[in-house]
Design a protein around this nucleic acid. Structure first.
Lengths: 256, 256
DNA sequence: AAGTGGTCTAGACCACTAA
DNA sequence: TAGTGGTCTAGACCACTTT
């Protein structure tokens, strides 16, 4: 005979069934902790263990003073990294003017984009230095740190690193929106011919949790895009932190 | 004056610092719960809240009866989805014979690959039916469900769905390894000309946690690859569940 | 047998939100 | 003010691993 499962597993299973069956609809408030204590005749800690278990699966979010709710999953944005910085595609959006594609995509969805930019000169973290071909100890880079928001809620973090010698004295050094037709670097005569993207799912750091207002048990995708010119020199590294559930990353791949 | 942070936040902060500073090395056992209760003069629950907080960040894993350990991050596998099923690249591995590329990559890393295959005819989940162009209610597909292991530890789940009319009576219907030079479908005269990949970071379901032996707070990436022939007909949908921390997904993108 | 983490109880007070 | 979830205590017994 197999060992009995802990009570809080069983309680979580019951609630999960009700959620997945739609009995407790998205955004709906579930019974409070005292109610669950009475229903299942357990202590409050046990109820809380069950709720935590479901929160860890991303099914519930608790809101202090209000209640615990079934997590809503609005339709995620589709983010096509194959075309996101292509010159071809940019032409299609040409009449969007100076707006970048992110802002365009968000606006098209009927929502309000916004970005805050900080610029500084830093010693980049070792993985970035490596990709830029810099001395990991002494090399410095221009860092453009952006927080992008949708409807005034922080949505993603995007840190771009440029070798300082490439961007010294250019508009990139100023904390303003510098999007331009064909890409930011193109206006400086630097043409990115190829990108390499690396995607890593992981749990967010405390800093990311706070900056993005992430509810518990929200993973992030760390996208690192390195741009190269036609000679294979790295021109830029962009590290984007995208919270789970709000987006899908898309790639179109030719089979050859 | 700002409100004081909870005790368990502070304790977690202390331990996190020691871990990130390398004072508590990877794989090392951290002080036991009784020791931490004494050190910080708090109850066991408070200690456990602090440890849970760090586990949720992916920094700790607890092992019943043994202790709590700083999580190890072995070098992740690099998984290049741009070339993973390309005919060009497959030629480079031609002398690997009948082995598929996954097995080849793992073997090259000096580890032992293995896959278990189950084959069945199913009504695919709605997102898959949609991608295959099937009736979501009545359409059926061939499902090849694989569990791939590295060094006898389950590593990823890969479910491939094929329209039944394409694969009726072919070797694909049998639960054996069917990799072939140029790809499985190529041997049936079905050529995939283009793929669309969709990547979604999320928390694992209970089933995934159990099948992959995932420690707490391990997110997964759900990769959905849809293969199309040159006329745009969907030939296959493959849903791969990749646990965080064990892999990096790579895409090479041409800027045009 | 001793030490680890896992489950569970019964209580208390606090912070926040809504009516 | 009443009700929600958040923090915290002080205990108990159990399951698992190591010695």
């Amino acid at each position: 005979m197999t060992r009995a499962a802990p009570k809080y597993h069983w309680i979580a299973d019951q609630l999960r069934e009700r959620i997945l069956a739609g009995e407790l609809a998205e955004g709906e408030c579930i019974p409070g902790e005292p109610a669950l204590m009475a229903t299942y005749e357990v202590s409050r800690n046990t109820v809380r263990l069950a709720l935590r278990r479901l929160a860890d699966e991303g099914l519930l979010v608790a809101d202090q003073g209000r209640g615990t709710f079934v997590r809503e999953s609005p339709k995620p944005f589709e983010w096509n990294w194959s075309t996101i910085e292509s010159r071809r595609r940019h032409e299609a959006y040409h009449d969007a003017g100076e707006r970048d594609q992110w802002a365009t995509t968000v606006t098209e969805a009927g929502r309000v984009p916004r970005q805050d930019i900080q610029v500084s000169i830093v010693t980049p973290p070792p993985p970035v230095a490596e990709r830029l071909g810099l001395d990991p100890a002494a090399g410095v880079a221009l860092l453009r740190r952006r927080v992008r928001s949708v409807d005034h809620e922080p949505y993603l973090l995007a840190d771009s690193y440029f070798p300082v010698d490439l961007v010294q004295g250019t508009p990139l050094m100023e904390p303003r929106d510098v999007s331009a037709p064909g890409g930011v670097l193109a206006s400086l005569g630097l043409v990115q011919a190829r990108y390499r993207d690396e995607i890593l799912p992981r749990m967010p750091t405390r800093r990311e949790i706070e900056m993005l207002h992430l509810p518990a048990a929200t993973p992030v995708a760390e996208h690192t895009r390195t741009g190269y010119d036609k000679d294979g020199r790295a021109l830029r590294v962009m590290v984007t932190i995208l919270p789970g559930g709000r987006h899908v990353s898309i790639y179109d791949v030719e089979a050859d």
